[in-house]
């Protein structure tokens, strides 16, 4: 019974956390990108415009959701929900802090620790393609359909690169549990360099690039491409559109959190021992959030810097650059780790 109560509390807290984070994230992106572009950004609603997202959300909520006459209405309604659910599900396996001990019981700051966590992340994130395909197809309009085809091709291609980029991580840490991967990164090389998986630099870079493509962020935002080529959610309005928007920003946060968890040691960081116990519990959460928001800033920074890629270049880059490089890197890593485990064959 207590297991269920614990799970219910964790799910509720995680949901509220991710929603509030998204609320701040949308505002922070708009503020940051305007800082990078000599603009002011939203500053009307609340102090520094921090309530802007709330106002936009309320507006979208009360707006009419127009139903295209040619649409397949059931699928048209399901698609935004199908976009949101995988985004929320990925966050479940991300540990946002070190396990804390209250009254002899250890609670993990993670909704659930699956022993196949990494596979779960890859599986769930590929479900997002269904939402986009359904949205484009059920709209009953040709431009969303074209956008959806483009989107699914892009996301499937970069999923391959992303999955391959994670293989060296599994080889190095010899676990697929996310908590296990974080635990494996706790030590240090020598005395002060943290033993983070970022030593797998090619993997890290490939994962980051594929992450940008997976979340449909610039410079790979051909999926949305609101300014010239039309995207999959053209026919959506009101709250249904807001759900797609929400899913995109949750995905940005998830991808940053995953990058931090898999390559930058997750919540690992120095915890001063002179602090009271309850602050000591919060320090890992602080390190996790700090690293994650740094990557969120990277997403915004890249958006402010790079123009959108051409579609054929995007595909060429995915299939002819990222995937061969990650395959070669996997073999290199496997050989190196094999040498370390079993010794050189000639010795």
């Amino acid at each position: 019974m207590t297991v269920f109560i614990e799970a219910a509390i964790k799910v509720a807290v995680a949901f509220v956390f991710i929603m509030l984070t998204t609320l701040v994230l949308v505002w922070a992106e708009r503020k940051w990108v305007s800082d990078l572009q000599n603009r002011i950004g939203p500053d009307r609603a609340g102090p520094f415009g921090i309530l802007q997202t709330l106002a936009d959300g309320l507006k979208a909520f009360f707006k009419e959701s127009i139903r295209p006459t040619q649409s397949i209405y059931l699928l048209y309604l399901v698609a935004p929900i199908a976009a949101l659910i995988p985004a929320l599900l990925i966050f479940l396996v991300i540990p946002i802090g070190a396990p804390i001990e209250i009254g002899g019981t250890t609670y993990t700051l993670q909704v659930m620790d699956l022993n196949i966590g990494l596979l779960y992340v890859l599986a769930v994130s590929s479900l997002a393609v269904y939402a986009i395909t359904l949205a484009g197809w059920s709209s009953g309009s040709k431009y969303p359909l074209l956008g959806a085809v483009r989107a699914s091709a892009q996301m499937i291609s970069y999923e391959a690169a992303m999955g391959l980029a994670l293989v060296p991580v599994v080889l190095l840490t010899s676990t697929t549990s996310i908590a296990g991967i974080v635990d494996a990164q706790q030590g240090t090389f020598g005395s002060f360099i943290p033993a983070w998986n970022i030593v797998l630099i090619p993997s890290f870079i490939i994962f980051l690039i594929a992450g940008f493509a997976e979340t449909n962020r610039p410079p790979f935002d051909l999926v949305e491409a609101e300014s010239e080529i039309v995207g999959y959610h053209t026919e959506y309005s009101g709250f249904a559109f807001a759900l797609f928007f929400l899913a995109e920003y949750i995905n940005v946060f998830n991808m940053s959190a995953l990058t931090v968890t898999l390559f930058l040691g997750g919540w690992a960081g120095p915890v001063p021992s002179f602090l009271p116990t309850w602050i000591q519990w919060l320090v890992p959460v602080f390190w996790f959030l700090l690293k994650t928001w740094a990557f969120v800033f990277l997403f915004v920074w890249v958006r402010a810097t790079l123009p959108r890629m051409r579609y054929d270049k995007l595909m060429t880059f995915g299939w002819k650059r990222l995937i061969p490089v990650s395959l070669a890197w996997i073999i290199l890593c496997a050989v190196a780790i094999g040498f370390r485990e079993f010794g050189a064959p000639w010795s």
């Binding site: 305007s34 800082d35 572009q37 000599n38 002011i40 810097t305």
Partner: peptide
Amino acid sequence: GFLVPLRQIRKGPVTRK
């Protein structure tokens, strides 16, 4: 090129309210 937008932070907004 990534430094170009970063340098804009110091310049500040050109927008007038």
